Simulated assay, not measured.
Amino acid sequence: MAQTIAPPATGAVTPAPIPLKAIAPWALFFGVLMLVLLYFIGAEQGATSLLSGTEVHEWVHDGRHLLGFPCH
Rank of each mutant, 00 (worst) to 15 (best):
R64Y: 03
A47Y: 06
F30S: 13
M34Y: 14
P19H: 14
E44T: 03
T4P: 03
G31Q: 04
A27C: 11
I5L: 13
M34E: 09
A6W: 08
F69Y: 10
P8Y: 03
A43I: 00
A27D: 02
L20R: 09
L28F: 05
W26L: 14
G53M: 06
A16R: 05
P7L: 14
A47V: 04
L66V: 09
L20G: 08
C71D: 15
P15N: 09
G46M: 00
D62S: 13
T48M: 06
Q3Y: 08
H57V: 03
H57L: 15
P17D: 00
H57S: 05
I23G: 07
P7S: 14
I18S: 11
L38C: 03
Q3G: 07
T14F: 10
L38G: 08
S52L: 00
L67G: 05
S52H: 09
F69A: 07
G63I: 06
Y39T: 02
I5E: 10
G31S: 15
H72S: 04
P15A: 05
V13N: 04
G31L: 10
V60W: 06
L50M: 12
L28P: 04
L37H: 13
L20C: 05
A22P: 03
S52W: 00
M1L: 10
C71A: 14
F69C: 04
Q3K: 04
V13Y: 06
P8K: 08
G11Y: 11
F30W: 15
E58H: 01
D62M: 01
F29Q: 09
G31K: 10
A27S: 13
A12Y: 13
A47W: 05
H72D: 11
L37C: 11
E44N: 01
L37F: 10
L20D: 12
Q45S: 02
V60R: 00
I18Q: 11
Q3M: 09
L66E: 06
T54Q: 11
Q45I: 05
S49T: 10
G42P: 01
P70G: 08
I41L: 05
T10N: 14
A6F: 01
H65V: 03
W26S: 08
G46W: 00
W59G: 00
A43W: 01
L28Y: 03
L38D: 03
G68V: 01
P15Y: 08
I18R: 14
H65N: 03
A16F: 08
V36G: 09
A9H: 14
